[in-house]
């Protein structure tokens, strides 16, 4: 996580600034509201990949399969998923 700037989601890197950015609107959680449930528990990997791919498609219109591949590549570098086989 960044220590000088606002915190970023440990799952997808999304910068979290306001309470609604955090899972369950709880600023003590490590993850954003997309990657974790109301209790702050990380959602299943495939669900997080899909949510991040949908976001890329919605914002930039890229191909869904390419977006899924990009989402997997993005998550692979994040603390929550780095050790995933």
């Amino acid at each position: 996580m960044s220590t000088e700037h606002c915190r970023s989601c440990g799952s997808c890197g999304f910068p979290m600034r306001i309470p609604d950015d955090f899972a369950g609107s709880n600023p003590d959680t490590e993850y954003c509201s997309t990657c974790a449930d109301e209790d702050g528990a990380l959602r299943p990997y495939d669900d997080v990949v899909q949510a991040n791919a949908d976001y890329l498609v919605r914002q930039q219109g890229i191909d869904l399969l390419a977006a899924r591949e990009m989402a997997r590549a993005l998550l692979a570098s994040m603390p929550a998923w780095r050790e995933r086989p």
Binding site: Q60, M70, A71, L74
Partner: peptide, 21 residues
């Protein structure tokens, strides 16, 4: 660049797109 680095660029661009939208 490695895929994960390229993905970082697209994630950043999506953040800009989100705010613009």
């Amino acid at each position: 660049l490695p895929k994960s680095a390229r993905a970082q660029v697209f994630a950043l661009q999506s953040g800009i797109a989100f705010r613009l939208r």
